[in-house]
């Protein structure tokens, strides 16, 4: 199951909630304001890092660019909309709105 998060972790506990339900191996994709979670060196870096131990983590590149985020937590892969579609080819989707 692909999990998407679109909320800034500074505003909402969606990320923490989602992680509680995440099963090992499930990919996590940050979109929209969700991408603030993966900016390198922020207070969520440790959480993202520990998630990366068991789950692939992605961030939507156009959303990173729109928000001026050029440096992301190591191990986070950026994907464009095509990459988003490829994740959906492989997985059912659970959007954590």
């Amino acid at each position: 199951m692909l999990h998407t998060i679109n909320k800034s972790p500074f505003e909402s506990n969606t990320l923490e909630t989602c992680i509680r339900f995440l099963q090992p191996g499930d990919p996590l994709l940050f979109i929209e304001d969700g991408v603030y979670a993966v900016q390198a060196g922020n207070k969520f870096s440790d959480l993202v890092n520990s998630t990366l131990q068991n789950n692939p983590v992605y961030a939507l590149q156009p959303d990173l660019e729109a928000r001026g985020i050029s440096s992301t937590t190591e191990g986070v892969k950026s994907v464009d909309y095509e990459g988003f579609v490829e994740l959906v080819e492989e997985h059912q989707v659970n959007s954590w709105l």
Partner: peptide
């Protein structure tokens, strides 16, 4: 538990938030 609900989520064809 969230673990149990997480497993159930993973069995779904569709999840509607």
């Amino acid at each position: 538990t969230s673990e149990e609900i997480g497993k159930l989520m993973n069995e779904q064809d569709v999840v509607v938030p």
